[in-house]
Design a protein around this nucleic acid. Structure first.
Length: 847
DNA sequence: ATGTACAAGATTTTT
DNA sequence: TCTTGTACAT
């Protein structure tokens, strides 16, 4: 083994002696411990309790991030640690950036000396790079993303002639990912899942996958942490170094950590024994039972290669009374755990006190974000969950406006109603940046986009494909990756025929066969093949040309700046040209993105540095900050806040999502409810809930019933409104009042779906399907008489659609037209002026 | 090697 | 209904 100490020093430049001055600077910048002044007593305690493990149970809007940043400032200011001795992990890059930004504001320059600030994966990756040789990698390994992972698996499946259509590579990738998140070896995987790989063969495929990763000098995201854990287990001296280095550990969003992250944290957070090295005792029995046993976990990811090593089981660091956990501070909210489906363990936070003996639990319960009504509604809703630690949030803000609940006929009307409310808010002086629409599933977004385009309302969709996930960026990066590391098969494969150069599947397949048989990377295989006659002359020439290009670029790399090299590569490879020739609408945008990519390279010293950054950190930065409504999923809204929040689609089957209920049962329901809680608590001043009675699911119309979560809201804080602005299902006079009775008042009528009752009781024609649970696939032919204020009075029908093909109709907005297609209540009409449109039959009138 | 026709499947998503 | 991926023909 090399001398990790030295290596680490190279890797951590901020650890120079000058760092000691930071505490002083920090104190000066903050004017003494004045930064503590604005904190309430709870927050202050969370900041100042520096000794021993601390769990901060922080509800929504209680100043979590502020506590974490202030805590770091406090540690520095007290001289308890130097920047390099603090490890702060967050869940997302976004959160890490936010933290860094705030620290910068608080400490000025000092933040530059704060290197161990980032996500689990980025920090894990960083440690792994330093000790790469311990897992038989070179330190410049590439990190595969999901896409690469899937393609690698496809290759392996193909090579092994495993062609099981039920389990395509993408699903296998998902499984492997899941296993790694849970810290499992193939042998520990639940039999149902293991069967996917076939008996015995499963291990082989997995082993082949891991082996191939090593040959390609690559790692997937799961391994960034798992290999870390392995190194820590097998090389106690390395572990001890990091244990000694990190005097303080801070973790944000602890409720979202998965098992691998948990294990990693637990290893790092122990105090090493000063005298006799690490304890070798076994972990507590409870851990073993619950599958958290460190010793059992992931001896070696490559099953075949590991057998020998596993028997010489290394010493197992464990938390014992002697090796006490030290200054770890985890911040989280069990009520905001919404990532269970991807391996997050709420249990981690629920078990904190058990895992870290002597832990102090501090609750932050004063909410600084939302008004009284919103907070009350959210708290009452979440109180229906059983498995929670329990917090009672309070606010000193005014009650504000009640949470509104609005019913709409269908999703289109829902979008229209929300659009009009937004315009109203805008007229009243609200900035669009302070308005968000949070949906459960991304397919809901389209309806809003359509509507906003019509209205000319600026909007932005958050959480679309990230910058670096775009095809053109990934292609360009593949070129650069391949220059940097010739062994990068996935990069090679990605660009070997992009732009088209006559090297199709057959050629690539051949290269694969050679590469795998000889256990060499594709590039080397290509080099070998070019020397033979195995390829047709045309393909051979083409491949040779490509290899020559790369040789030239690699040579140029030494003598020219990397940005210039990038431009040359994109140019000479014909890649830029390919998009220039492309006539499709987004080609210009793609070229623009490529320029942006080159521009972003300027910040880095060299190609290597840039690529390392890319694989772990690069994130699309929000574009220019123009005023626009945000549309996003509830999941991506976590951690954000807006004055006005619209929450459409509160219907059974959609929210709570049917699949969550089917697959996770009660746990699934509780997670959905937490999601609802997260949604509500994003709002500062106004929260507006919507449900539609009809929604199109996979193309066919279904009648839906309002979400049970609506029943779980406290009547006192909620107002039932009509769908506004000429779109409601009118005549809601007595409707509101009757609903109030059905809203939940603490502890009562949880089981009775009041909304369903209310609907059934209305006794209005047309709602004959209301209350019928979720009949997917049923096409709706009967409908209610609609009073559309300001528009038309729709037809009252007791029978099926009154329109027939060829009917001449009138529409308020589009004018006169001809019915050309009928689909349930959706009509396709060719309007005289507006052209062909799809319209709900209630908005047109036969003339 | 590339274009077209048809079937299947369609939450949430970070690194 | 619409997208995506695979099978097949050119």
């Amino acid at each position: 083994m090399t001398e990790p100490n030295r290596v680490i020093h190279r890797d951590v430049p901020e650890h120079r002696p000058a760092a000691g001055g930071i505490a002083a600077r920090a104190r000066a910048a903050a004017g003494g411990p004045q930064y503590l002044a604005g904190l309430n007593p709870e927050q202050r305690e969370a900041v100042e309790t520096l000794d021993g493990p601390v769990l901060v149970l922080a509800g929504a809007g209680t100043g979590k991030t502020r506590v974490l940043t202030t805590r770091i400032a406090h540690i520095l200011s007290q001289g308890r640690a130097r920047p390099g001795e603090i490890l702060s992990v967050t869940f997302t890059n976004k959160a890490a950036r936010e933290m860094k930004h705030r620290l910068g504001q608080m400490l000025g320059q000092a933040v530059e000396g704060m290197p161990w600030l980032g996500t689990f994966h980025s920090i894990g990756g960083r440690i792994l790079r330093v000790h790469a040789e311990l897992v038989q990698l070179k330190s410049n390994f590439t990190v595969l993303d999901v896409d690469d992972q899937i393609r690698l698996l496809k290759q392996l499946l193909q090579a092994d002639n495993i062609d099981d259509k039920r389990w395509p590579a993408r699903m296998l990738a998902g499984l492997i990912d899941g296993w790694k998140n849970r810290g499992l070896t193939p042998s520990q995987v639940p039999s149902g899942e293991a069967a996917v790989f076939g008996n015995g063969r499963g291990g082989k495929l997995y082993a082949a996958y891991q082996e191939r990763l090593k040959i390609l000098n690559a790692s997937d995201f799961g391994d960034l942490l798992l290999e870390n854990i392995r190194i820590f287990r097998e090389h106690p001296d390395v572990l001890r170094q990091y244990q000694q280095r990190f005097k303080f550990i801070l973790v944000d969003e602890y409720q979202d950590t998965n098992v691998a992250q948990y294990l990693w944290l637990r290893l790092l957070s122990q105090t090493p024994q000063p005298s006799s090295g690490l304890q070798t005792t076994s972990p507590p029995a409870q851990d073993r039972e619950q599958g958290y046993d460190l010793a059992d976990t992931f001896g070696h990811p490559v099953a075949a290669a590991s057998e020998a090593e596993e028997r010489t089981s290394p010493v197992e660091p464990a938390i014992t009374p002697k090796a006490r956990p030290k200054n770890i501070c985890c911040v989280g909210d069990d009520d905001q755990s919404i990532y269970g489906w991807r391996g997050a363990e709420v249990d981690n936070i629920l078990r904190f006190e058990h895992d870290f003996p002597g832990a102090k639990v501090i609750r932050l319960e004063r909410n600084y974000r939302s008004t009284g009504h919103i907070l009350a509604a959210a708290s009452h809703l979440i109180a229906h969950n059983e498995g929670r630690l329990g917090k009672t949030l309070r606010t000193e803000d005014e009650d504000g406006e009640k949470v509104t609940v609005t019913g709409a006929w269908d999703s289109e009307e829902e979008a229209r109603a929300i659009g009009e409310e937004i315009e109203q808010l805008q007229r009243a002086g609200n900035r669009l940046n302070e308005i968000a629409i949070l949906v459960r599933a991304s397919f809901q977004m389209r309806e809003f986009e359509d509507r906003f385009v019509t209205l000319g309302l600026p909007y932005r969709v958050i959480g679309g494909p990230r910058f670096y996930e775009r095809a053109e960026i990934r292609d360009a990066l593949a070129y650069l990756r391949l220059i940097n590391s010739p062994a990068d098969d996935l990069a090679f494969e990605r660009i070997v025929n992009v732009p088209k150069r006559g090297l199709g599947d057959a050629t690539v397949q051949m290269l694969h066969d050679i590469a795998r048989k000889r256990r060499i990377p594709l590039t080397e295989a290509a080099r070998a093949v070019v020397e033979t006659d195995e390829l047709k002359p045309k393909a051979r020439g083409s491949l040779r040309g490509l290899l020559d290009n790369f040789d030239r670029w690699r040579a140029q790399r030494e003598i020219m700046p990397h940005t210039e090299l990038a431009e040359i590569v994109l140019d000479e490879s014909g890649y830029t040209e390919m998009w220039q020739k492309d006539r499709s609408a987004d080609a210009a945008g793609r070229l623009e993105n490529l320029k942006e990519l080159v521009r972003s390279m300027e910040e880095f010293e060299n190609l290597q540095g840039f690529l390392e950054h890319i694989s772990l950190v690069m994130d699309r930065d929000g574009g220019p900050d123009e005023d626009a409504v945000s549309v996003m999923t509830l999941h991506s809204a976590k951690g954000l806040e807006f004055d006005n929040v619209f929450l459409p689609g509160w219907e059974e089957g959609l929210f709570p999502h049917q699949r969550a209920l089917d697959e996770q049962g009660r746990a699934g329901l509780e997670e959905e409810r937490r999601l609802a809680h997260v949604g509500l608590t994003r709002a500062r001043r106004r929260a507006k809930l919507y449900f539609a009675t009809n929604r199109r699911i996979h193309g066919s119309w279904s009648t839906t019933i309002p979400s049970r979560f609506l029943d779980e809201l406290p009547a006192h804080n909620v107002e039932i409104t009509e769908s506004k602005g000429g779109s409601g299902w009118g005549g809601a006079g007595g409707y509101g009042a009757s609903r109030f009775d059905n809203l939940d008042s603490f502890g009562s009528s949880y089981a009775t779906p009041g909304w369903q009752r209310a609907q059934a009781n209305r006794g209005r024609g047309g709602f004959n399907e209301a209350g019928t649970p979720y009949n997917a696939g049923g096409s709706r032919t009967k409908r209610a008489p609609l009073t559309i204020e300001g528009e038309l009075v729709a037809k009252s029908t007791g029978t099926s659609s009154d329109f027939s093909l060829g009917d001449r109709v009138f529409h308020q907005k589009f004018g006169y037209g001809l019915v050309t297609k009928i689909d349930g209540n959706k009509l396709t009409i060719t309007f005289d002026k507006a052209g062909e449109k799809k319209v709900v039959d209630s908005f047109v009138e036969r003339v």
